[in-house]
Each structure stands twice: as C-alpha cells, then as structure tokens.
Computed example of a mutant assay.
Amino acid sequence: MPRRRAKDVTPGTSRSTSATISPNILRYLSLVADGYGVDLQPELARVGLNETMMRSAALRVSYRQGSTVIRNAVELTGDPHLGLRVGAAQHLTAWGVLGFALLAAETLRDAIETGVRFQNLSGAMLVWSAEEAEIGYVVRAESPDPALDPTVAVFLTEEALASVVTLTRLSAGAEFTPVSVEFSFPAPQDTLVFTELFRCPVRFAASQNRIVFPSAWARRPMPGHDPVSYTSAIELLEEQMASRRDQQDLLEVLEISIAQSLPDVPSFVEQARRHTSSERTLRRRLAECGTTYEAVVDGVKRERVEQLLHRPELTLRDIARQAGFSDVRALRRAVHRWHGVAPGRLRAPEGPPAG
C-alpha cells in the first residue's frame, strides 16, 4: 500500500511567523507545568499570548511561538522528558470536531488515517504519515525543520508518540501495546520512563520516529463507530481545512509583502489597498487567523533580524536599519522581548538558538 501523507501540513509549508497551529500542545503543557509549580503565563505573554486568548477555540499560534514556549518550559521544569508527560496527559476532547471524528471512525486504522489527513487541525507540530508494512501498521512523525532546536525536537517527538499511544488506549482499548516504538534521538540516561509508558521495546538513535501497531489492532473496530456521525464530522473538517488554507495564504502573502518592503513597512491602509479589501475586512480576516497586522510585521522583522545577526560583518546599526527599526535601542528592546537576551548574545556561538 502506498504511504499516506497529509497534503496540507502547516509546519514547513508556511513561514515560521504564520499563526496557523492550534495551541493544544501549549494548553496541555501549561497544565503539566502547573504540576511542577511552574507558571507558564509569563512565557506565553512573552510571545504575545494571554490567558484569555489561550481559552479561545479560534486561537492559532505560530511554529515559532510554540517552540519558544516549549524550550523555556523544559528549562523551567528541569524535566528532560517533559514531552512524555504532556503526551500522556492528553484527551481527544481537546481536538474538537477532529477528536469526535476519530471516535466515530470505523476502525483504528481509519481513525489514524483521518488524524493524518486533518493533522493541521489537531495542533500537530510534526509531520505525520502512516502506512501498512510487513511488521505491522506504521505511524511516523517527522520534524518539519532539520535545524530545529534539539531540546524542542526531543520534546515534540516524545509528545507526539506518547499522545498517540495514550489516545489509542483511551479510545480503542486500555490494553493496547505497540509492537515497538522508535526515537531518532540518542538514548537518555534513564529509559525506564519510556518502557513504563509504552509497555513495549523502545529503541533510540533510530533512523526515524515511529510507532508500529499490531496489524490486528489497526483492523480493530472503534467502540464509538457511527457512520452518520463520522460523515458529518468529515464534512465539517473539510470546511475547516478550506478556511485554514485561505487563512494561511493570506498570512503568507502579507509576510512576503512586508519582507520585500523592508526596511520600510507598508501601512495597514496600504496592505488593504493591495488586497483590494477594506481595512475592516482585512482586520477581521486577520482576527480569524488569530493574529493582527502588527504581530505579522513583528514576526517578519524578527525573522529578518535573526538572519542578519548571523552576518558578522554587519553592525547592530546596520541590522537595525535593514530590519526596519528606528535605531539600535529599538532593536535591542525587540530582541530582548523575543529572546530575553541582548543581540550580542545571539551572535555568540554559545548563545541560545533563534527558535
């Protein structure tokens, strides 16, 4: 059988500033961090999110926002396997209509393939695929960015595979045990937490991140199967995907327009004119994307600054000018808001990654 992939996958297909990812991971991350006595509200605020926004079903975050909060959460909790805890804490109810569709699918395989098809709506920050193989039914998770911060990459991989096993047990049977689980990162000092969660052989430093389902489990009927409800849910998901593509196209067009205009930034009025739209309509469409024009501009400037900081021949004054800042002080304030450090720290080899 040919390998099945989602055609429209948010990570890697849009610029990192686009707010197109459902914040499910961040919501569960906040809950788990609370158990460590860590309040992530300041970290969320640092990337432009607040408690009210996090409760909104319409909220979308960017890949960069998610990565920044995750990296800081791992550091604040001191738990190198925080991703496992977050994955194990999840429920399908957080996925809305998609979660309902998975529960109503005919078989576990149908549920998985539905999740892969509509992964953009689940809050996934990795790229999912699934296929039938001789060893069983294989579900893979791949990073959309080879240069992703290793701390964030490990978290996302742990969270992804742990959530699949956890949600399978909740929806199809608590006795579920994979044939095997494989991680591409090196083996940690303590592997007991992995074997306790997955209850099967766990391999590290593998060529890919994957879970192998027993073929019998993949064919297993879902307890909540309902063909009418499943069809209705799929119709709603198709509508959401079409809307998401429109939103993503809008954000990408705006980002390209801003990036090409730097150091000058087109006014909101000018952008509305370019899109043959009224200011009110454009503002409403951005609100539907979970963002504002100011946030899009800020994201593009941030990306430009991070690129320019890797060019040692440029002074901070050069970078400020090329990225559209009024002076070096404005640049320093922006970098500190984004990263919590001065621009010079980001230029140092040992400095924190740009996210």
Rank of each mutant, 00 (worst) to 15 (best):
S243R: 14
V202Q: 07
R219M: 11
N209I: 00
R203N: 11
F213G: 00
H225E: 13
V228S: 10
S243C: 12
E239R: 14
A218V: 04
R219W: 12
F204I: 08
V228F: 05
R203K: 10
M241L: 15
N209R: 01
F213L: 15
R203Q: 13
E235K: 14
V212Y: 06
S207Y: 05
P227H: 05
P214D: 01
D226V: 07
P214R: 03
M222P: 14
D226G: 13
E239L: 14
S229A: 15
M241P: 02
R220Q: 14
G224C: 04
T231N: 12
M222K: 04
E239N: 13
R210N: 06
E235A: 15
R220H: 12
L236M: 14
P223I: 02
I234G: 01
Q208Y: 09
N209K: 09
R220M: 11
P214W: 01
P221D: 00
Y230F: 13
A218S: 14
M222I: 06
R219G: 12
A205F: 07
A242R: 13
Q240P: 01
P227I: 03
M222N: 11
S207G: 07
Y230W: 11
E235H: 08
G224F: 01
R210Q: 13
W217A: 11
M222W: 01
Q240H: 13
R220A: 04
L236C: 08
P214N: 07
A218C: 02
E239A: 15
F204W: 07
V228M: 10
V228H: 04
Q208I: 09
M222D: 11
I234L: 08
A218W: 04
Q208G: 12
E239W: 05
A242P: 04
A233V: 03
G224R: 04
E235Q: 15
S232R: 14
E238A: 14
M241Y: 03
R210I: 08
E238S: 13
Y230L: 02
H225K: 08
Q240S: 14
Y230K: 13
Q240A: 15
S229N: 08
A205I: 06
